[in-house]
Amino acid sequence: MHISDGVLPTTISLAAYAATALGAGLSLKRIRQEDLPKIAVVTSSFFVASLIHLPLGPTSVHLLMPGIVGALLGSAAFLSIAVGLFLQSILFQFGGLTALGANAIMMGLPALFCGFLFQAIRGTTLLRNTIAGALAGGLGILLAAALLAAFLYTSGEDFIGVAKLALAAHIPVILIEAAVSAFTVSFIFRVKPELLHSVLR
């Protein structure tokens, strides 16, 4: 799920860039020094996750990870995703540099939302944490697909049609992502629960 170069109108690309810069700046201001290593590791995982292709029927899907990044990093997730997407676009040719702003918004906003949601609904038990992780993971993709449709709507596509298409294409991703997130969160909860007390402030 990446918007390519030249799809969006220039004004939208520029606006998305401005919003991304603002978001990255805000999340940079809220970073605490002791969280830097964690953010670095999660960013690296986010960056590499898109290379892991899971065969699925005739095609293959890859992980997107906005939900789990949000759950682990809280408000720093936006910066993390912007950095990861920037490197993906220059090293992997995913998306394009002009669409980077839009791509960062598309993944970053769901990450932030899922981060807050995760902190709000995760209780203190393993089960609730796991469910919260799964919800965050699945919802991240769902929201990203919705944002993708919204962005494509500005380029003159029919919103409902694109939204349906994006949703249908990503149903397997949503399921896989939810499972992966649930597993990750339950593992971290058992092994090092203080990692989940995220930078949310």
Binding site: I31, L36, I39, A40, S44, V48, L87, L91, F92, Q93
Partner: peptide, 23 residues
């Protein structure tokens, strides 16, 4: 065209470097 291990490692290096600078 396909990104390989080299690109992945390069990107991870960039990320760790960036956050190293930040730290």
């Amino acid at each position: 065209e396909e990104p390989g291990v080299r690109d992945a490692v390069a990107g991870i290096g960039y990320i760790l470097g960036l956050f190293g600078i930040a730290a």
